[in-house]
Simulated scan of single mutants.
Amino acid sequence: MKKAAIGIDIGGTHIKSGLIGTDGTILERRSTPTEAREGKQGLLGKLDNLIGDYERIAAEQNWQLAGIGIGTAGYVNLQGGIGSATDNLPGWQGTSLRDELEAGGTMPLFVENDVNALALGEQWLGAGQGRDDFICLALGTGIGGCLVTGGRPYRGRNGYAGAYGHQTIVADGLPCTCGLRGCWERYASVTALKRMASEQAGSREWSVSPEAVFAAAREGVEEAERIIDRYSAYIAIGIANLIHSFNPTAVLIGGAVTAQGDFLFERVRGHVRSCTLHGFANEPELEILPAALGGMAGTIGAAKLVWNGIEKRSQAELDTGVEEIREWRVCRENS
């Protein structure tokens, strides 16, 4: 019987989900509008419906469900609850997500920050393969991050590590949805690019979306090029801070902007080289790469939480069995 895990990636705009096999094969997938304005109960209802749908699909296909993995925006504590969240998901802060969803279920359930899940997906099947130490970033509605060290996401004292979008890059800068000012995500997220285009390009037809701004810049529209260059510089400032702090082997960047390829990444790399100390981003040159799994990276990584959890449980059971055998042998030898 084929085994599958339910992977769910909760973002501020969309919930991406799927049934993922043990080898990372996507057996079923879908994207659902988050409709964050509906608040906590609306989002929990969507998750219940998604899980129920996947349970029915698995039963119809005779697939064995191994568990549920969830990567969510917000800062996830070690108990699987949302310890902190911005207004991108109203009412989400304080939600005991693992408890809420486990209450009526029978499958193992694992909850992580969404960028930690993205990093796991990329490490498993994407641009992070073969790497035990790297930084993973997601540029979207906000900015999230994950430091992978020793092959595992670093979670920090209470699980909140990776709030790189809320490093201050402009003293007394623009107010952020988190309540602070001058946060990196107010200048380098996709939301920030939308604001920059609106403020600097006004009603020009190419300012209606980030994709349109990039398209205009590619066509040589000088004003659009200036916006993209300034946006790239803001991305680079935050990355340079992380490079100076962690000296990683690579920086992987996920999110919709990765579709812009080298048109964006070469600009970012150039700005990073100009604002990092000698040796940190060169000799050899630090790799700054787009994530390889696209929009499904977080979903695949969420499913990997399940497979990792099962492996740990199996190993723990094996270790317990070995210890029991050792104790039995000692007792027998002493009898």
Score class of each variant (00 low, 15 high):
244 H>D: 12
184 W>Y: 14
251 V>I: 09
219 E>W: 00
194 K>A: 09
156 G>T: 13
181 R>W: 07
172 D>M: 09
163 A>S: 10
182 G>L: 04
145 G>N: 10
183 C>T: 09
270 G>K: 11
272 V>L: 09
141 T>L: 15
195 R>A: 05
270 G>T: 07
162 G>M: 06
223 E>W: 00
187 Y>V: 02
239 I>Q: 11
165 G>H: 12
213 V>S: 13
269 R>V: 14
248 P>T: 11
198 S>D: 09
192 A>I: 07
223 E>G: 05
190 V>G: 12
269 R>G: 14
160 Y>Q: 12
258 T>H: 12
275 C>K: 12
271 H>Y: 13
230 R>I: 05
207 S>A: 15
273 R>Q: 09
243 I>Q: 08
221 V>F: 11
154 Y>E: 12
213 V>M: 15
203 S>H: 15
136 C>I: 04
195 R>I: 01
213 V>H: 14
143 I>K: 11
276 T>M: 12
189 S>Q: 05
203 S>I: 12
215 A>N: 15
216 A>C: 12
237 I>H: 07
260 Q>T: 05
144 G>V: 06
205 E>S: 15
173 G>K: 06
138 A>C: 09
170 V>S: 13
225 E>D: 05
171 A>T: 03
151 G>H: 09
147 L>K: 02
194 K>E: 05
257 V>A: 15
266 E>I: 05
217 A>H: 02
260 Q>D: 10
192 A>K: 06
228 I>W: 07
212 A>W: 02
154 Y>S: 13
160 Y>A: 15
176 C>G: 03
187 Y>W: 06
225 E>W: 05
221 V>A: 14
255 G>V: 00
243 I>F: 11
256 A>M: 02
236 A>L: 09
225 E>M: 04
196 M>E: 02
146 C>F: 01
229 D>W: 02
142 G>H: 00
147 L>Q: 01
261 G>Y: 00
195 R>S: 03
255 G>I: 04
256 A>Q: 06
230 R>Y: 11
250 A>I: 11
191 T>S: 14
145 G>T: 07
178 C>T: 04
215 A>L: 11
180 L>M: 06
150 G>M: 10
150 G>D: 03
255 G>K: 02
218 R>T: 12
266 E>F: 04
270 G>Q: 10
148 V>G: 08
209 S>Y: 03
188 A>N: 07
253 I>Q: 09
174 L>V: 13
167 Q>L: 07
212 A>F: 03
152 R>P: 01
202 G>T: 05
198 S>I: 07
249 T>G: 14
211 E>L: 08
222 E>W: 03
236 A>Y: 08
254 G>Y: 06
234 Y>W: 12
166 H>E: 10
205 E>I: 08
183 C>E: 01
148 V>F: 02
136 C>V: 08
244 H>N: 06
189 S>Y: 03
201 A>E: 01
201 A>G: 03
259 A>H: 02
141 T>D: 08
205 E>W: 04
224 A>K: 07
147 L>E: 02
168 T>C: 15
172 D>K: 13
264 L>T: 11
244 H>G: 11
149 T>E: 14
220 G>Y: 08
203 S>D: 14
201 A>C: 06
189 S>N: 08
227 I>A: 06
238 G>D: 08
185 E>C: 02
187 Y>Q: 03
211 E>S: 13
189 S>P: 01
242 L>H: 14
178 C>A: 10
199 E>A: 10
216 A>R: 06
200 Q>F: 00
219 E>V: 00
230 R>E: 04
